[in-house]
């Protein structure tokens, strides 16, 4: 492929303009052609839009109770019905999106960040490797949800402790992924060349190793995002996650569980919201993996 075949992009003058064939652009173009990535992206953007517009599209008070309208089934006034305190569930579910997306995204970002640092350090400073990786192995011995339950129990029900709990559960998974990629990259000729020309460890890591680990890390990050949304919901459902009265999809389901037969709408809609969010992010993750790193294997 030459630039000429791409028309507009190639015709744009100026040195700052990156060639249309830069790997980044190519990947982006292939991503946008990937059907499930597109579907997932549109779904997620819609959810983010709803969460952002929450004050304008809901009554704006997720915790306002009203005894007169307890257990109202879905209707025009209350699209998702009301709960046992007469709170509007549409408002609560939309505000819950803020909590869930925020926690999921923060956890994914923090795990990728710390996992990335640990993984690269383990791969580059070989003396640290076995110590770091044994600690990661020990953390990995616990399924993520169990570790999160343990840490969450220690820290008590708060938003910050949910984030810390889930992050500590996903750091080892990111670290392993990055270490595996970094181990391959450090043997490449260009790293050798950088070392011979006197580049410091820090510079090699930042300039050569990290950028080349980004693709698998990005894919992992996306799946961690989806897992974290499910895990936050699970913790909140068990009563050790987002504390009431904060609306979180997990704790609304827990609350609706007692009335699941008579007032099915309380638990139905937040559950659907969790499923749709996780689904959209997983779809994006599939697209990213297919385009960036088809051989990558993700552990949950």
């Amino acid at each position: 492929m030459t630039d000429a075949t791409h028309g507009v992009g190639a015709a744009t003058p100026g040195p700052a303009r990156v060639s249309t064939n830069s790997p980044m652009r190519l990947a982006l173009r292939r991503l946008m052609r990937h059907r499930s990535f597109r579907v997932g992206l549109v779904m997620l953007l819609l959810i983010v839009l709803l969460a952002w517009a929450a004050p304008w599209i809901t009554n704006g008070t997720p915790n306002a109770t009203s005894v007169r309208v307890r257990f109202t089934p879905p209707s025009l006034d209350y699209p998702f019905g009301t709960d046992n305190f007469g709170r509007d569930l549409w408002t609560r579910v939309v505000y819950g999106a803020r909590v869930s997306l925020w926690i999921g995204f923060t956890v994914a970002l923090l795990s990728a960040f710390f996992g990335g640092i640990i993984g690269v350090c383990a791969a580059w400073f070989r003396r640290l490797d076995s110590l770091l990786m044994r600690i990661m192995d020990a953390l990995m011995a616990f399924p993520a949800i169990l570790l999160a339950i343990g840490v969450s129990a220690v820290l008590g029900p708060q938003l910050s402790s949910v984030i810390i709990a889930l992050t500590s559960a996903y750091i080892p998974r990111c670290a392993r992924m990055v270490r595996a990629s970094a181990l391959v990259i450090r043997e490449q000729d260009y790293v050798e060349a950088a070392r011979i020309s006197g580049a410091s460890s820090l510079r090699i890591i930042l300039r050569h190793i990290l950028p080349n680990c980004l693709a698998p890390l990005l894919v992992t990050l996306t799946f961690v995002f989806a897992y974290a949304i499910l895990a936050e919901a699970t913790l909140s459902f068990l009563g050790i996650g987002t504390p009431p009265p904060h609306a979180s999809w997990g704790n609304i389901v827990a609350q609706g569980r007692d009335f699941a037969v008579e007032a099915w709408w309380i638990m139905l809609f937040p559950g659907l919201a969790i499923s749709i969010s996780a689904l959209s992010i997983n779809l994006m993750g599939d697209g990213l993996r297919d385009v960036l790193d088809p051989r990558l294997k993700i552990e949950g």
Partner: peptide, 16 residues
């Protein structure tokens, strides 16, 4: 894909 996206505690209540 639905299997890995649906929260199991919610599904459990629906199944019950």
């Amino acid at each position: 894909l639905v299997g890995v996206s649906v929260p199991n505690f919610w599904l459990a209540i629906l199944a019950i």
